[in-house]
Design a protein around this nucleic acid. Structure first.
Ligand SMILES: [Mn+2]
Ligand SMILES: [Mn+2]
Ligand SMILES: [Zn+2]
Ligand SMILES: [Zn+2]
Lengths: 160, 160
DNA sequence: ATTGCAACTGAGAATTAGTCTCAATTTTAA
DNA sequence: TTAAAATTGAGACTAATTCTCAGTTGCAAT
């Protein structure tokens, strides 16, 4: 269970399992999809869970380092995460028109990456793959522009 | 040549090929490796090339959209780019200990991604793959920590 | 149970990266 | 040559994240 994983991780680093870290962990694992630090803070505030912005920004890197969450969608100005413990890693396709996020996983893809690492004597720990383009629906909407690459690089809508 | 590509791109969008854009383009294509907007500005200032921060921040997305540069290393708080025109796309492995960047390209990997896109009816335009881990040298340095995942998530050294 | 101390916390100041505003200037198509 | 539309630079502004520091708290050793 994620709480145990986090506790052990912290102990091994000589860090403490505080109330704040516990409640942040719980909140993060109550979500299904992607989230960002500000969302996390706002939602916790609404529920009456009191943690400071600073603690959120301090805890997320620890969760990341412990492998309990991953960073996703590094496109926007701010960070996005999702918890992966118990779900398994996956990568993303992101529509540059409507912001739709398609999750993808492929053993072949993961395997190939491992091979490539081996070839370079590199010990791969984690990775982020994001494919940007246009979803089925948006290809239909605007064929011409798509061929000509004339979209905004950064889509407006991003969360889900 | 990149100048022509950029000119045509701008014309197609109804934008102008200004002196500032020209000099930024030239500077960007004078680099070998990765760079970030602030570096770009500083280096240009040192050379007596006068462009404003605003123009740099306005031009980089255009270069990106035109396909002349790509975004890389989305880890740090700020954007990093490299020019790819005439070099070809590639992905990166980044050492979490020393910051070493290994460039990698694999037809198999690119092909597999295309397949995955097709399966989702997604029109892939570009992608970023970053594998984080430890380079050969750093594996030697600190076997124990590596197994235990006890490194900083964000390495200190990043440019090259 | 008490203690000691390093780690942690919240509040808000500070910093960083990037965006916006607007008056003056430049590009480009006619 | 002209004029509209796009662009520019300077600096104000914003958003996201980090830092500071004085007062807590967790926890390992008594
Ligand atoms: Mn996801
Ligand atoms: Mn590169
Ligand atoms: Zn779409
Ligand atoms: Zn290394």
């Amino acid at each position: 269970m994620e709480k145990q994983v986090f506790k052990e991780f912290l102990k091994k680093k000589g860090l403490k399992f505080t109330k704040e870290r516990a409640v942040i962990l719980k909140e993060v694992f109550s979500y299904h999809g992607h989230f960002d630090p500000d969302e996390l803070l706002t939602k916790m505030r609404k529920k009456g869970l009191r943690v400071s912005k600073a603690s959120i920004y301090r805890t997320l890197p620890l969760l990341l380092e412990s492998g309990l969450i991953e960073e996703v969608e590094k496109i926007d100005k701010h960070a996005h995460y999702e918890h992966t413990f118990g779900h398994g890693h996956h990568d993303h396709m992101i529509c540059m028109k409507c912001g739709k996020v398609i999750e993808l996983f492929s053993d072949a893809l993961e395997g190939l990456q491992e091979e490539l690492c081996k070839k370079e004597n590199f010990k791969g720990i984690r990775h982020v793959l994001e494919i940007r383009g246009y979803c089925k629906k948006c290809i239909g909407d605007r064929k011409i522009d798509i061929e000509g690459r004339h979209d905004r690089v950064h889509p407006t809508i991003f969360h889900r």
